[in-house]
Amino acid sequence: MMAMIQALFLRDIRLARRVGGGATLGVVFFLILITIMPFAIGPDLVLLARIGPAVLWIAALLATLLGLDRLFQSDCDDGSLDALRASDLPLEVIVLVKCLAHWMMTGLPLVVAAPAFGVMLGLEPDALWGVTVSLLAGTPALTCLGAIGAALTVSLRRGGLLLAILILPFSIPVLIFGVSAAEAASGGTIPFATPFLILCALSLMALVLAPLAGAQALRQMDE
């Protein structure tokens, strides 16, 4: 069982590095989103520093969701999914492993890049730290929720937009507590731990919900 999980995980990582542009594409998109913000808002560093955590979180949300539509679709298109379903791994585990691999190649690079981009928005060290830790705790939830959308839209040729429409409302709680935790880290009326622990809880719940709902969706959609 562990050997299968490892094989699947490594295959997805390898594929992401060879075809998806790997970790760089998501980070570049993230950077572009950060770059266009001052053009819309103005180069006022004080203002940017104040809304910086929110900007970083929205950029991370979009960068995560927009890259997810091919998560299951490529396996469905080339027939891999049919064969995967005949393996001894339950489809729920397959979904979970694919989410994990996807997060390693998109979510984690965003977390790593966040401090650098935060500096560009004039964030203080406290806020930088808060944003990074909250992204680390929250992006798995975004990937998992997005995976449900990816499974539901697996049969659609251009499912990316629909995926965002379906899943963005469900990701609002993650956004709320992610930004709250990031802002609480740089001083505020509430302690950092309160929103942060709820954020962790949301991530854990998504980690349970996504494999169940995603696997069910794949079974239903692949008929």
């Binding site: 049969s155 659609l156 469900f170 709680p173 709320i176 719940m205 919900l209 239903q220 959609m221 008929e223």
Partner: peptide
């Protein structure tokens, strides 16, 4: 968006049920 009726119904059903779990969370947040 989903042309096949049965498939659309099952997708919508799953999303609706995911919503049942998520709506209280959204309300709370």
């Amino acid at each position: 968006t989903i042309e096949d009726m049965g498939r659309a119904a099952r997708a919508a059903a799953l999303l609706t049920l995911v919503g049942v779990i998520n709506l209280p969370i959204i309300k709370f947040s």
